[in-house]
Design a protein around this nucleic acid. Sequence first.
RNA 1: GGGGGGUUACCGAAGCGGUCAAACGGGACAGACUGUAAAUCUGUUGGCUCAGCCUUCGCAGGUUCGAAUCCUGCACCCCCCA
Length: 426
Amino acid sequence: MTDIFADLMWRGLIHQTTADDRLPEWLNTGSRTVYAGFDPTADSLHVGSLLPLMMLRRFQKAGHRPIAIAGGATGMIGDPSGKSAERNLLSSDQLKANLQGIESQMRLMLDFECGATSAILVDNNDWMSQFSYVEFLRDVGKNFPVNVMLGKDSVKSRLTSEAGLSYTEFSYMLLQAYDFVHLNREYGCELQIGGSDQWGNVTAGIDLARRMHGAHLFGLTCPLLTKTDGSKMGKTESGAIWLSSEKTSPYDFYQYWVNVADEDAGKCLRFLTELELEELQELDQSRKESPHLRQSQKRLAESITTMIHGDAGLAKAKQATEIFFGAEIQALSDAELGQIFADVPSNAMAFEVLSENGYSLIDALVVSGLCKSKGEARRTITEGGAYVNNRRVGEVEAALKRENLASESMIVLRRGKKKYALLRFE
RNA sequence: GGGGGGUUACCGAAGCGGUCAAACGGGACAGACUGUAAAUCUGUUGGCUCAGCCUUCGCAGGUUCGAAUCCUGCACCCCCCA
């Protein structure tokens, strides 16, 4: 049996645990059942969920059974931890759709068919909806001293803030605590893991189980995956990075990791990949001695992209990367180009415009959406920021003609470093 | 109720009769450098049929050869006195 605790330790994945003295041994002397909660507010998980999912994965590989709980019930309420304002409530239809999407993504990382340690995905709405309000108050609420609840950081910070805290959110803790009790009773689950911001909720569950059944459960929190500047991982100017290829293309996903700052790379590698210590140290070394090679980032991007989008997804992302940052694009087929530039905006127009005098580059830049006006297009060209098939074009009066086709019917326009658009002539 | 100040381009902020498509700063966009980074440097930043023309300075009118700049009315905002 792998010493999961030691593994987590050297990776820096342990922030706080309960029963420090007994937990490591307990984990190493039998197959245990552990659980972590996930946020069902969208139909896809985003990069922020990778860490807890990886945690479950590590536990499963070490011979334990993981339970992922996508909180249909708690999702309807909203966890006040770390939130500055009341959350919008979700409709139950929306939730159902979200849970479905999330499950398919979990299958990428957890094994749901491997016998005794198969992963389980549960929805706490299944049991919470059985409760009547009065029953819940009698069985669960009775065991929660309000003075203790008021002492939790998540509550305290909101009470003093302007946004305040609704009774609903205040009760969130009870729901999550009861989840633990329920999973303990139904599945023999004895360990809850979560981010360090979940500490209050985790211990609330442990307390509740002790009061209700005299059970002794465990809790373990891992650090939050934040950048060195303190901001959250997985956010860009254009929004969150999702695991779903519909929302974030494999290329963008791959690129996100390739662009991780040097200071954050080591942590990401330790937290989000299964690379062994030896390789991690080599990468640390490489980052220090030859940062320009960015081996850490590349390894990180490869590892995570493969896990989420498979070998095919990685291959596509890398191919696109080569083209995007490569030399002139030419002699490709429509199919190849279409693949590579799948998420790039494209416009179709008549083939004939390429004949004779051709199609003015200025118009093309505007039509493609790369420039807002002809004036801007003109400027862009003058500044040297306009490219046709990755080759800079500096003449304002340039026109696109047949010989500019990169494939049977397409021309690739680019503005600046990374903004692409595809023109199709049919 | 009385008195005073403001409203300028994506944002902040100059301009106070012509040389104003409007200084300056920020942001944004390009370029150089580089590691697809950071920092730095340079350029651009209303539209077009682009050596020219057209529309912008809260809104509507007016004075003037000529207004973002002066006058009148309207709207919104701020401050002071009651």
